[in-house]
Structures are given as structure tokens and as C-alpha cells.
Measured scan of single mutants.
Amino acid sequence: MEQATVKWFNAEKGFGFIERENGDDVFVHFSAIQGDGFKSLDEGQAVTFDVEEGQRGPQAANVQKA
């Protein structure tokens, strides 16, 4: 698992990007966020996640709020 920071997340559209420590951004979809209830992330929030290869490149999976 990697630890990184949420760059931005649009709760209405259900997706955003996580900024990795190496500077690369990773796409995150609300369905990858672990937990119950409304799944959203806040800008600047610390998260841990795995990286999977998606249809359009790397994307976050198993996202957990740190």
C-alpha cells in the first residue's frame, strides 16, 4: 500500500486524483473508497491505497482514509 494526499475530489461526479509522493497523480473513483456510507474524499486528506492498471492507466484501489 502507498500513502499519499488527495489532490482533488469531486463528490458530485464521484472521482478525483491522489497525488503520489513521486509527484505522479493517480485517478480515484468513489467505488474504490473503503467504508460505509457516503464515499467521498477531501482535498489534502491523507490516504492509503493500492494501484491497479485501469482502462486509462493507473488508478487507485482499496482507498482508506489515513
Rank of each mutant, 00 (worst) to 15 (best):
M1C: 13
M1R: 15
M1G: 13
M1P: 13
E2I: 14
E2M: 13
E2S: 11
Q3C: 15
A4Q: 04
A4E: 02
A4W: 04
T5F: 13
T5R: 14
T5P: 02
T5E: 05
V6H: 01
V6E: 05
V6Y: 00
K7L: 03
K7D: 05
K7M: 00
K7H: 09
K7Q: 03
W8K: 02
W8P: 01
W8N: 04
F9D: 04
F9G: 06
F9H: 03
N10P: 05
A11Y: 11
A11R: 13
A11P: 13
E12L: 13
E12Q: 13
E12I: 12
K13G: 04
K13W: 12
K13P: 03
K13D: 04
G14Q: 02
G14K: 00
G14V: 02
G14D: 01
F15Q: 01
G16L: 03
G16Y: 01
F17K: 04
F17P: 03
F17V: 08
F17L: 04
F17D: 00
I18R: 00
I18V: 05
I18A: 02
E19F: 12
E19A: 14
E19T: 15
R20N: 06
R20Y: 05
R20G: 06
R20C: 08
R20W: 08
R20H: 05
E21L: 12
E21W: 11
E21I: 12
N22I: 10
N22C: 14
G23K: 09
D24E: 13
D24N: 12
D25L: 15
D25T: 12
D25P: 08
D25S: 10
V26L: 15
V26M: 08
V26W: 05
F27G: 01
F27T: 02
F27S: 01
F27R: 00
V28Y: 04
V28C: 07
V28T: 02
V28K: 01
V28P: 05
H29Y: 04
H29R: 02
H29S: 03
S31F: 05
S31H: 06
S31E: 05
S31G: 06
S31N: 07
S31T: 13
A32K: 07
A32T: 06
I33E: 04
I33R: 00
I33N: 01
I33P: 03
I33M: 04
Q34M: 13
Q34G: 07
Q34E: 10
G35T: 09
G35L: 07
G35N: 06
D36G: 11
G37C: 10
G37V: 06
G37I: 06
G37M: 06
G37E: 07
F38Q: 07
K39N: 06
S40I: 11
S40P: 01
S40T: 14
L41K: 00
L41D: 00
L41Q: 01
L41H: 01
L41Y: 02
D42M: 15
D42N: 13
D42V: 15
E43D: 10
E43F: 12
G44H: 08
G44Y: 05
Q45T: 09
Q45S: 08
Q45C: 09
Q45N: 06
Q45K: 03
Q45D: 14
Q45G: 07
A46H: 14
A46G: 09
A46T: 13
V47A: 03
V47L: 04
T48I: 13
T48P: 01
T48V: 11
T48W: 15
F49Y: 08
F49R: 03
F49P: 02
D50F: 15
D50R: 13
D50S: 14
D50G: 08
V51H: 04
E52I: 15
E52D: 07
E52R: 10
E52N: 08
E53K: 10
E53L: 14
E53P: 10
E53N: 12
E53Y: 15
G54D: 06
G54K: 07
G54C: 09
G54W: 05
Q55P: 15
Q55S: 13
Q55I: 14
Q55H: 13
R56L: 10
R56W: 15
R56E: 06
G57R: 05
G57M: 04
G57Y: 04
P58K: 11
P58M: 10
Q59C: 06
Q59T: 07
Q59R: 12
Q59G: 04
A60H: 02
A61G: 08
A61W: 04
A61C: 11
A61L: 09
A61D: 03
N62Q: 05
N62I: 04
V63G: 01
V63S: 01
V63A: 02
V63N: 01
Q64M: 10
Q64W: 08
Q64D: 05
K65Y: 09
K65M: 10
K65G: 08
A66S: 12
A66N: 11
A66K: 12
A66Y: 11
